[in-house]
Design a protein around this nucleic acid. Structure first.
Length: 571
RNA sequence: UGGGAUGUAGUGUAAUGGUAACACUGCAGAUUCUGGUUCUGCCUUUGGGGGUUCGAAUCCCUCCAUCCCAGCCA
């Protein structure tokens, strides 16, 4: 094949190395092993929960591969277990994929679309003597499956006649037998060293209402039977799944080899995404929701796609994140710090800078005229000249951040303390003169004087200040609620010590500040806007936000080298 | 102890028999009207042992470690 398929030139023109799946695909393409030379992938979530960050890897892989090689990616809801699945989940899955910017077009499928065909294939297997109805109890089935190191034993029903099997399977489907009484099994090899090949179950009886097929069926096909055949029906060429399915590949290949089934699809396995400080199993996430530890699947502390979206992560940053993580077969755990790096990098370029004082104290400029108001023009984003400017009102009384003033400053502190001069961002230089305290000794008001010559933030004499504070005019500011989110878990591997991840919850994962002072226009900010509260972090309006009660979620803090320095000094 | 997989800096990923590298983290410094950004530098790597070869992360042997599998879940 020609060089242009072999290489992978990026916009910069440099060559990026291929991951192992891309290598396989390019090899298949180069050797004419792909029908119509068009690869077809699929993203096959089970609608039994919300999608999480781990799924982003799979979504980007499947949709990304299709994009890159001019193929097609199907969305297939793998809905073969009506006991666990729900319409709510189907809707959330679709909106999460769209949020990431992927489009499956008309290729929206459901495993349940294939129930009729699957049923027919099962009957044909029975007719060929390749499947049988097993009347063993679930306990007997388990017993006779053997163990990891010992072979299983054949079921006494294994040699039931074809007619009998046909009759029983028909009656199973007619609802004549309760759950657990009969099972349709493939006749493979009870002595196989691979347990998945020891006569895998094909159909079980389940009296559950299905989100899509309602009560039409009371027998439902199993994953090992449904998945490969769904792939075959849809013409999937590269069926990509996670490592734990490696052992199932022989079953997959068996199903694709059934008479009349397209044997094009091949299964490839990659390592799922793990991130430290996170739990990523749907079961655990469901638990957090049901126990009320979080407010719901979209709680901004949840690693769900809806959670991180509400938290203020951009889809672009997440796509960048998974691309940096890469694709391989090694079980791995990615540092949460990489995810934070990716959002910061993206939001630094696009977030509008605003002044928000989270924990306010009043700053009074004693030598500033009582009623004077002046306006300063402030750039919306120093990283993006096209972002424009806005005007901010300034007057005698302002709010500044409580931590920007100290009566007794530690070494290295270059913010406001009595006698020290700092800059109020884009406004004036001010020098602290005194402070007032309440009965508990907490500073309530800081007094200062300003230098009129320093208007705009620079002085004619060119003297420098070490600190620059953000501020809002006390007369103009509005109040707002700010939700400071941090990691949900305090340890790298939740439950790693005690075995119970709930033991490792971070008690400070959410701190709500009710008294933040904000630039007035923030009352109208809408969810989905990316903001930087200067010197503090990236924030986004929550959907709880209203003009009379604005609410902001912290996406991630800014990097804070002063906090590090303080920590080192033991402060 | 059956079967399936995997071992490259702290973390993740490259290098397909020819100088072990990139990113994140960490550390140090410079710049800065955000203690942000940007920039510079530093730290640390082929699981062990044999073998083949002029030459091995790469090929062979062997040992070790880790993960997955005994649902009528996916």
């Amino acid at each position: 094949m020609s060089e242009d398929v072999r290489t992978n030139a990026t916009q910069e023109g440099e060559e990026k190395s291929l991951n192992f799946i891309e290598k396989i695909i390019e090899d298949d393409l180069a050797n004419g092993r792909v029908p119509n030379n068009t690869i077809v992938t699929r993203f096959p979530p089970e609608p039994n929960g919300y999608l999480h960050v781990g799924h982003i890897k799979s979504i980007c892989l499947n949709f990304g591969l299709a994009q890159k090689y001019g193929g097609i990616c199907h969305l297939r809801l793998d809905d073969t277990n009506p006991a666990k699945e729900d319409m709510e989940y189907i809707d959330s899955i679709k909106s999460d994929i769209r949020w990431l910017g992927f489009d499956w077009g008309e290729h929206e499928y459901y495993a349940s679309d294939y129930y009729d065909q699957l049923h027919e294939i099962a009957i044909n297997l029975i007719k060929q003597g390749l499947a049988y109805v097993d009347g063993q109890t679930p306990e007997q089935v388990k017993e006779n499956r053997g163990t990891l190191t010992t072979p299983g034993k054949n079921s006494p029903d294994r040699d039931r006649s074809i007619e009998e099997n046909l009759r029983l399977f028909k009656e199973m489907g007619e609802g004549k037998y309760p759950e657990g009484t009969y099972l349709l099994r493939a006749k493979l090899d009870m002595a196989s060293p691979n347990i998945n090949m020891r006569d895998p179950a094909l159909y079980r009886i389940k009296f559950a209402e299905h989100p899509r097929t309602g009560n039409k069926w009371c027998v439902y096909p199993m994953y090992d039977f449904t998945h490969p055949i769904s792939d075959a029906i849809e013409g999937i060429t590269h069926s990509i799944c996670t490592l734990e399915f490696e052992d199932h590949r022989p079953a997959y290949d068996w199903a694709c080899s059934i008479d009349g089934i397209d044997h094009t699809p091949h299964q490839y396995e990659f390592a799922r995404l793990n991130i430290n400080y996170f739990v990523m199993s749907k079961r655990k996430l469901l638990n957090l929701v049901q126990l009320g530890i979080v407010s719901g699947w979209d709680d901004p502390r949840m690693p769900t796609i809806s959670g991180i979206r509400r938290r203020g992560y951009s889809p672009e940053s997440m796509k960048d994140f998974v691309s940096r993580v890469g694709v391989a077969k090694v079980e791995s755990v990615v540092d949460y710090s990489l995810m934070e790096f990716c959002v910061r990098e993206d939001l630094n370029k696009r977030a509008k800078r605003v002044m928000a004082v989270l924990d306010p104290i009043k700053l009074v400029i004693d030598n500033y005229p009582e009623d004077k108001v002046e306006y300063f023009e402030i750039e919306n984003n120093p990283e993006d000249p096209t972002a424009g400017t806005r005007k901010m009102a300034f007057c005698k009384e302002l709010y500044i951040e409580r931590e920007d003033f100290m009566e007794v400053p530690p070494k290295g502190y270059h913010r406001l303390y009595i006698g020290n001069e700092i800059r109020l961002k884009t406004a004036y230089y001010v020098k602290a003169t005194s402070c007032e305290k309440d009965e508990n000794g907490n500073v309530t008001v800081v007094h200062c004087t300003y230098d009129p010559e320093s208007r705009g933030g620079e002085t004619p004499d060119g003297r420098k200040v070490k600190g620059t504070s953000h501020w809002v005019s006390a007369r103009h500011a509005i109040d707002g609620e700010v939700r400071l989110y941090d990691k949900l878990f305090a340890t790298e591997y939740p439950g790693g010590e005690t075995g119970n991840y709930l033991d490792d919850l971070n008690p400070d994962s959410l701190i709500v500040l009710q008294n933040a002072k904000l630039e007035p226009w923030l009352a109208d900010a809408k969810p989905g806007e990316y903001l930087q509260f200067m010197r503090s972090g990236y924030f986004t309006p929550d959907y709880d936000s209203t003009p009379s009660h604005p609410v902001f979620n912290r996406t991630v803090t800014l990097k804070d080298s002063w906090a590090k320095q303080k920590a080192k000094m033991g402060l």
